[in-house]
Structure formats: C-alpha cells, structure tokens
C-alpha cells in the first residue's frame, strides 16, 4: 500500500529532511522515496508524451515534490493508516496527501469476508477430518475384532490394544496434512502461471504466499492432534475392552 505526500515547493532541504526523518520513525512505514519536481515531470512525460508541448508552453514545472511512502503490509489496517495520515496532514510543508481510503476499506472488508469464509470452511473440514478418521479407525477396529478379543484373552493391557489404532489415527492425520501442504504448494506455484497474467491490477492484491516453516510445522502437528482425537473418540465408542 502506497501513500503519496505532496510537499510545498518552497520547503527548504532541512525542513524536507526533518519531515522525512519524522515519517521514517513511524512503525507503519516500510519505505520512503523522495520524488523531486523534475522526476515527477519526467514520469509524466514518459506516461503522456503527447502532453509534453503543453508543459513547455507553461514555462514552469507545475509538479510539486513528493514523498512516496510504502506502508508495512501488517499495518495496512485503514484506521491505523488514517490516523497516521491525519497526523501527517498537520505537518508543516505538507500540501496534500493522496491515499485511496475507500479502496482500502473495501479490500479490508473483502479480506474479513474471505477470512470468515476460510474459518467456516476450515471448521467444517476439521469436523469432516475428525469424522473420517474416526470412521476409518472404527472400520479398523471392526476388521480386527478377532485379534482384539485374542489380545484381551492373553492379557494385553487396554493401552496395548489401543496403541496401534491411535498410531494409525495420528499417521492418517499427519499424512492428510502433508498432502494438504503438498497441494497448497502446488496451487501457490501454479497460480501465477495460469491466472497471474489475467489478474492485471489485482495481481498485487491476490498475491499468494507460501506457508512459513512454522506454519507447516503447526499444520503437521494439528494433523497429528486431529488424528489422535479422532481415533481416541472412535476407540472410546467402539472398542469395548
């Protein structure tokens, strides 16, 4: 997310430096670039070469100097940025600020919606995983009923009988999460190749990130936990020891 702060042409280099320093101190700011009047005009001419004679007729450079501020993605919440910009507006030498608040709010609302849908679907999938693992273990218990009864007769402890089923559940859970991670990696790798170009301006918004190593570990661990809970609940219901 970028914010453009247009500065007063008459601002001295010291005042500009002080303002830049002050902005840099904010934790919201990831990067700050100073654009001179000349650089602004060059950019304009590059983008609109047909209008160059018009600028020459003016005789002066109409573009003010500006500061292009990149906001840290994790601080892109609009209310934080809004209060930051409000404080900036009060600074000496700041003429105007260009920042599309409506869009940010819309994207944030969309983000919240996507998160809510994700949470809902995630919860559904979690329950489905528990149900599936629980049933797989149940089938396994039914298939091995004879073996279980023999184990009981020869003096196996409850934990000895339960252990293979619990391990089966944990392995299923971990395998499930590994497959999910694999698919996710595949989607993240293939998404830009197949859809990336057609996204155009939305490319920045729909940028897909790979999972971090800690997220991968959490996912695998969660798979194991789901497997454990699924198998244990199934054993509690179907394995009469």
């Amino acid at each position: 997310m970028a914010v453009i702060v247009f500065l007063d042409k008459n601002l001295t280099p010291q005042e500009k430096g002080a303002l830049e320093e002050k902005i840099k101190q904010s934790p919201l700011v990831a990067r700050i670039d100073y654009v001179t009047q000349e650089q602004a005009m060059t950019r304009f001419i590059q983008k609109f070469p047909d209008l160059q004679p018009l600028l020459q007729d003016l005789g002066t450079n109409p573009f003010p100097p500006s500061l292009e501020i990149t906001i840290q993605p994790r601080y892109s919440r609009s209310h934080l940025v809004t209060s930051f910009l409000d404080s900036l507006k009060r600074e000496k030498g700041v003429q105007d600020i260009q920042f599309n608040l409506d869009w940010v709010e819309r994207i944030e609302s969309f983000d919240r919606l996507v998160r809510a849908i994700g949470l809902f679907l995630g919860s559904l999938l979690l329950l489905a995983s528990l149900f599936i693992i629980s049933n797989v273990i149940r089938l396994s218990v039914v298939n091995r009923q004879e073996e279980i009864s023999i184990l009981r007769l020869v003096g196996a402890t409850n934990n000895f009988i339960r252990l293979p089923f619990v391990l089966e559940g944990i392995i299923l859970g971990i395998l499930g999460s590994l497959i999910a991670i694999g698919f996710l990696w595949l989607i993240i790798s293939l998404f830009p190749l197949y859809v990336g170009h057609s996204l155009g301006a939305f490319k920045e918004i729909f940028q897909l990130r790979s999972l971090t190593s800690s997220q991968v570990i959490i996912l695998i661990f969660s798979g194991g936990i789901i497997g454990f809970v699924g198998s244990f609940s199934s054993l509690a219901r179907f394995l009469k020891i």
Partner: peptide, 13 residues
C-alpha cells in the same frame, strides 16, 4: 477392569 490383564496373564485358555 483395567487390571484384569494381570489375572489373565496367569492363565492360558
């Protein structure tokens, strides 16, 4: 119930 295995280990059936 959870200690029956001790008895059963002393028996063969």
């Amino acid at each position: 119930d959870h200690l029956i295995y001790r008895l059963r280990r002393q028996m063969g059936i």
